[in-house]
């Protein structure tokens, strides 16, 4: 039996790839341009504040651009428009995947607070926070792909 990938599933793969690339390149950029230049900066709270504030809009803009490019390429290659609506199944899958990503982030948040409770450096807390945010995003997309493939 031929297995077809739906547009929603394709977009989830794109979002997953985008999240991984954004996280990898952003962490690499910050590490090379800030931490390597001045290793003590990891103890500076304003550095972490700036890193978080820049990462969020950058990630949103890159994801939007990726989706626009994907919509254009998909239209050229398959002559199919991306679905404008999300129906009950898609909404249920989104709810379940968001629920999972919230749990992943909450676990990361508790670990981050635990690191502070154990008198670890603030950098450990921020790294745990940023990593749990990344893992939450990944787990959301992986859950979506799982539900699209396996069903609800």
């Amino acid at each position: 039996m031929k297995t077809t990938i739906s547009s929603h599933e394709k977009m989830t793969y794109l979002s997953l790839t985008g999240s991984i690339l954004i996280f990898f390149f952003y962490v690499r950029y910050v590490y090379l341009h800030s931490v390597v230049v001045n290793p003590d900066i990891v103890n500076d709270f304003s550095f972490w504040g700036r890193s978080f504030i820049v990462l969020i809009p950058v990630a949103i803009v890159v994801q939007i651009v990726l989706h626009i490019v994907f919509a254009i390429v998909n239209k050229i290659l398959t002559n199919e428009d991306l679905p404008a609506k999300s129906d009950e199944m898609v909404r249920l899958i989104e709810l379940k995947s968001i629920q999972l990503s919230h749990w992943v982030f909450v676990i990361g948040f508790f670990l981050a607070m635990g690191s502070i409770a154990l008198n670890m450096k603030p950098a450990v807390m921020f790294i745990l926070l940023i990593f749990s945010g990344f893992m939450a995003s990944i787990s959301s997309d992986v859950a979506k792909i799982y539900y699209y493939r396996k069903g609800l």
């Binding site: 739906s6 679905p83 129906d87 009950e88 199944m89 898609v90 699209y148 069903g151 609800l152």
Partner: peptide, 17 residues
Amino acid sequence: GVTRQTIVAIENGKYSP
């Protein structure tokens, strides 16, 4: 009023509407 993907999932028993 749903996507084709949902009809496919219902037909294949992967989703109960």
